[in-house]
Lab assay of single mutants.
Amino acid sequence: TTVKVNGTKYKFDTPEEAQKFAKKAADKYNLKVVVDGDDLRVE
């Protein structure tokens, strides 16, 4: 599972880890998590 934040992709072994990271990033930058198929985007 990958998470894309500000054009940078981060790869995670499990969707749970990816979800946690995406949520933290979204909170930090005051953005929202967008599900894109198997991957997540923070925008």
Rank of each mutant, 00 (worst) to 15 (best):
T1N: 08
T1V: 13
T1H: 12
T1Y: 15
T1K: 09
T2I: 13
T2C: 13
T2D: 03
V3P: 01
K4D: 11
K4F: 15
K4G: 04
K4A: 10
V5Y: 07
N6I: 05
N6G: 12
G7S: 05
G7Q: 06
G7N: 08
T8Y: 13
T8S: 09
T8Q: 13
T8R: 15
K9E: 13
K9G: 06
K9L: 14
K9H: 11
Y10T: 03
K11G: 05
K11R: 12
K11D: 07
K11M: 12
K11S: 11
K11N: 09
K11H: 13
F12N: 00
D13V: 07
D13M: 09
D13T: 11
D13C: 10
D13F: 07
T14N: 09
T14C: 03
T14F: 04
T14P: 00
T14S: 12
P15Y: 15
P15R: 13
P15D: 05
P15N: 07
P15W: 14
E16A: 10
E16S: 08
E16G: 08
E16H: 07
E17A: 10
E17M: 08
Q19F: 15
Q19T: 08
Q19V: 10
Q19L: 15
Q19A: 12
Q19E: 10
K20Q: 13
K20Y: 11
F21R: 01
F21H: 02
F21C: 04
A22S: 02
A22V: 03
A22W: 02
A22D: 01
K23V: 07
K23Q: 14
K23D: 08
K23N: 09
K24T: 11
K24C: 15
K24L: 13
K24E: 14
A25V: 15
A26Q: 04
A26N: 02
D27M: 09
D27W: 09
D27P: 03
K28I: 09
K28V: 07
Y29F: 12
Y29N: 08
Y29M: 11
N30R: 09
N30L: 06
N30W: 08
L31E: 05
L31V: 11
K32C: 13
K32G: 06
K32D: 09
K32A: 11
K32Y: 10
K32Q: 12
K32M: 12
V34N: 05
V35E: 11
V35A: 10
V35Y: 13
D36L: 05
D36M: 07
D36R: 05
D36F: 07
D36G: 04
G37T: 04
G37D: 05
G37Q: 05
G37L: 04
G37E: 04
D38L: 13
D38Y: 10
D38F: 11
D38C: 07
D38H: 10
D39T: 14
D39K: 05
D39H: 11
D39R: 04
L40A: 03
R41W: 07
R41P: 02
V42C: 05
V42Q: 02
V42N: 02
E43G: 10
E43A: 08
E43W: 06
